[in-house]
């Protein structure tokens, strides 16, 4: 019955009975199985295919945006603007608490964008000119591919980056 043959130890203390050994074995097997189950469950819960729109997409041709104007694409939550240096794309998600920043069509020079939630105001380049927003609007990657403007909303670029036309 004893699995330990250390004669110096009292058997009653060191002895591993069959029941105990089987319990350990069974419990261990159950533990391993549970662990495997949890890993499998987590893998199941993480989707392998997403039905979300592509993060990289075309927004139009360079000629479509005259210098000093803004192209608004509400569905993809971005603004594409053009100044004398070139084009740039900004996220329209307010840097304060994530509302949709609105483009002011009848705006004065210093208040191009306005957030309806808490009144943050941004200028043409996305700089904060008023309200609680802590930093300028996030800029996302903009490339020009054969005259087509291509935006990648997954890739943020430093504020002030301009893609030359």
């Amino acid at each position: 019955m004893a699995l330990v043959d250390d004669l110096n130890e009292p058997i009653s203390e060191r002895e591993i009975t069959r029941r105990r050994a089987l319990l350990t074995l069974g419990g261990g097997a159950l533990g391993v199985a549970s662990l495997g189950g949890i890993v499998t469950l987590l893998r199941f819960m993480s989707p392998n295919v997403l039905f979300e729109p592509a993060t990289r997409f075309k927004v139009g041709r360079v000629e479509d945006i005259p210098i000093g104007s803004v192209l608004v694409i509400p569905k993809r939550k971005i603004f594409v603007a053009r100044n004398d240096q070139g084009c740039f794309a900004m996220s329209s998600v307010c840097t304060h608490l994530g509302c949709m920043v609105q483009h002011q069509t009848a705006s004065k020079a210093k208040e191009e964008f306005f957030c309806p939630c808490h009144g943050s105001r941004f200028d043409f380049e996305g700089n904060v000119v008023g309200g609680p927003a802590p930093r300028p609007l996030d800029q996302v990657s903009l490339e020009i591919d054969g005259g087509e403007l291509v935006v990648d909303i997954k890739e943020t670029v430093p504020h002030g980056t301009v893609t030359e036309v």
């Binding site: 499998t40 893998r43 199941f44 993480s46 989707p47 392998n48 295919v49």
Partner: peptide
């Protein structure tokens, strides 16, 4: 069909 061919362990479940 996705459960069978795309989702991990989907076929098994």
């Amino acid at each position: 069909k996705d459960l069978q061919f795309v989702v991990s362990s989907g076929t098994f479940l």
